[in-house]
Write a protein that binds this DNA or RNA. Structure first.
Lengths: 192, 192
DNA sequence: TACTAAACGGAGACAGTCCCCGCTTATCTC
DNA sequence: GAGATAAGCGGGGACTGTCTCCGTTTAGTA
């Protein structure tokens, strides 16, 4: 392991400022917030922004890692409080809510489960995949979830459900409805 | 009804050229193809493009209406050839394939089923909704599709499935897989 | 042929991305 | 503390794209 010398104090300061401003900007303007504008608001030149975060993805990820980690943590919390099947559904719901309501997170979560996404994004997707995997295994042990499905597949489907819900209602009011259509299937008799 | 005088010959010519070039460009570069570039390739100024098609949506729609009509027509064809349940699934599959493979159509179909989309787009979505409605009714009459679901909901879910499939594989190789997860549901025993 | 309204087209204002490179400054050494 | 040095800064500028405005051209008409 190569010794990494610590960041220079001014660099660290700027890095942190950028992260803070970026989170605000993405929340306010969505994933396409102007990067030059973020740099300006943080009081740095655009060169500085692009040095710290070479791509929009990189900045997006850095700005939201903690939120995503929290989401992953939430899975284990739910697993303790609810029976496996319900915990899974509940977490899927929270995942979809986050996807829709926290602007900018959709792109991030999306690319985390997309084939061929960058290694950097993969790192951030790993904990979400792990969380999903744990919930699914528990549900499968209980016999309430089919065996022939992978965590990444369900993550993608959740993203799809979020997309569908968003088309119906920007606030995510249809998430539970569409989620239940997915869990129950389209055949008759599935209606509760 | 006000008499609409016919388009001037040069205007009509340009209109048609633009449409042709636009379809090619969207196919090649996706929904974000440069509009100025389309104008250039069609041999007209950008002013002319924006006069005929005030927004990207308008151009996208005009370029793909025939394809969408064809898709709607395909529904009735399938309805004649297959039992209702299969016809529905088959059409959903073709819908998803189109959504993914014909670049530019995703945005269009998406906005057609989105709450609050423009009147212009609504017109183009109407025939798709009609086609979906007919297939669903037949399936419901046969008792192979739950009763408590609307055409627009299934269109949105199909869009979601297409989104999910696209994340797995840009070519749409997973469409049938994800579609079957939707139709069968996530409970055990649904695996065929 | 001459008129006129319809239509054209491209210059230019604006916004965004991203890189380059001369300048500044934090940190280390003595 | 003073000086050396490389890490880091920052904004100018090239580029790409959107979209409008308005002087010019031309199809259709009489």
């Amino acid at each position: 392991m190569a010794q990494v010398r610590p960041m220079r104090a001014d660099a660290r300061r700027n890095y942190e400022r950028l992260l803070k401003v970026a989170a605000e900007s993405f929340a306010e303007h969505g994933e396409n917030a102007s990067l030059d504008d973020i740099a300006k608001r943080a009081g740095v030149g655009s060169g500085t922004l692009y040095r710290h975060f070479p791509t929009r993805q990189a900045l997006l990820e850095a700005a939201y890692v903690d939120r995503i980690e929290a989401l992953a943590g939430r899975a284990d919390e739910l697993a303790e409080q609810l029976p496996p099947g319900e915990a899974l559904v509940e977490w899927l719901n929270e995942l979809c809510v986050g996807t829709i309501q926290v602007r900018g997170m959709k792109a991030l979560l999306g690319s985390a489960v997309t084939d061929g996404s960058s290694a950097a994004v993969t790192a951030c997707g790993t904990s979400v995949k792990g969380a999903m995997g744990r919930l699914m295994e528990a549900a499968q042990r209980e016999g309430v979830l089919r065996e022939d499905i992978e965590p990444i597949e369900l993550l993608r489907l959740a993203h799809g459900v979020a997309t569908a819900s968003e088309m119906a209602d920007k606030q995510g009011g249809q998430i539970r409805r569409y989620l239940s259509l997915l869990t129950d299937g389209l055949r008759p008799g599935a209606e509760d």
